[in-house]
Design a protein around this nucleic acid. Sequence first.
DNA 1: GAGTGGTCTAGACCACTGC
DNA 2: CAGTGGTCTAGACCACTCG
Lengths: 246, 246
Amino acid sequence: MNASTQSPPATFSPLYRQIKTLILQALATGEWKSGEVIPSEGELAIRFGVSQGTIRKAIDELAAENLLLRRQGKGTFVASHDDPRAFFRFLRLVPLSGGIEPSRSVPLECWRAKAGPEAARMLGLNVSDPIIIIRRLLEFSGKPVVADEIYLSGEIFGALTLEMLRDYDGSLYSLFESTFGVRMIRAEERLRAVPADRTSAELLGVAEGSPLLSVERVSYSYGDRPVEWRRGLYSTEQHCYVNNLG
Amino acid sequence: MNASTQSPPATFSPLYRQIKTLILQALATGEWKSGEVIPSEGELAIRFGVSQGTIRKAIDELAAENLLLRRQGKGTFVASHDDPRAFFRFLRLVPLSGGIEPSRSVPLECWRAKAGPEAARMLGLNVSDPIIIIRRLLEFSGKPVVADEIYLSGEIFGALTLEMLRDYDGSLYSLFESTFGVRMIRAEERLRAVPADRTSAELLGVAEGSPLLSVERVSYSYGDRPVEWRRGLYSTEQHCYVNNLG
DNA sequence: GAGTGGTCTAGACCACTGC
DNA sequence: CAGTGGTCTAGACCACTCG
């Protein structure tokens, strides 16, 4: 494609956005995988038939959206959930005392089910489509802090088992990325304060009815496709959820 | 200044960042006020002795940080809290049912005090420095949803009174901006779930001990100067706090 | 039409990485 | 040293706004 000589599209969009879309497609189809380098700006400029400056602007936006990672002198890399910097991007929980604590994910259950109306709506599925449900605990310094219930499309994550969750040493999203090729690129969370039900109270070691932070999340992969819906109950006795309003 | 011929500074920073700093200074000193246009890119290029592209890159970053607002064909404007787009930047509360509700701020009290150790730390003051404390209610569709307690530096907001709060028709930050020339540019929030104390329960019309969302916020003005500390108790029976993880 | 920001290009040079 | 991204420039042209 020589974009500089093509006829203008019906709905105008600048050249660098068209390039951005093409790069996104290459990312979505897995041409460049998580953690790998993508071709240099010069190579991409030749490949797409535009100047290096136009490539830069496309990559700039993708880097701003945390899809790509530039490293001077080395190249441009596909962002990965394995990157330690990505850890706090989706888990905004810190100890009240400050500092950093060791955390551990403890999978409890993982089973197949059929999507109810709510899960179907959240995941963009039809009612009765196969889904996978995970229940797990998140511990900080050995103490349970978050009880999660996670809903996934059965079609995408069909092979997922409790053993895989137990054996994997890394974050859930790292597992999804490396094993299923599904990268979360953004998420929407809705927070409320709710009283602890009996099950959660026992799991988290708090009194029944005591306040918990309810965090509902829908995560999206490439093309704004919803691929995960989860509800977490956070004990905020020793931790708090931090948020920066830019 | 002709930045392109100056000797390199001890700690290297690219030209466009130096320009950005100069623009930030002009914003902080009030050379260009909230809502006003700043000089065109061409004018700034001449004023600072750099190319227009370098000015663009500086403005790009400031626009990305929501300090400036570009409008094609019209100019570049100093961001303002009056802008309706700024409303949801600092209040991430939406009705569970979706949609948009009319909101109203109801000031309850406003008094002078001396900073305690916590307020002093949060606001970067010394203990016993003068501060102002505001208590107010936030209503959605006529029902109380948020009970706020707000701590301000007495030095900066010395003239603030309950009457001013009552008479002002707009957001609190619009008042701060227009009357005291203090613009909030970012904030850090820490969220927890807590049981309602008796006072808050009465104010919000919920049962004592029922779960409330506690939102502590420190807001910063130019130069990362903390100027406001507040704690809000949010009733999340009909509303939720939304957050986008990018 | 004049003035603004937005796009695109081409080329030079700098800063960082790793062989 | 070669290859990468990062900065800076100068100039052309496009898209939008307003008088």
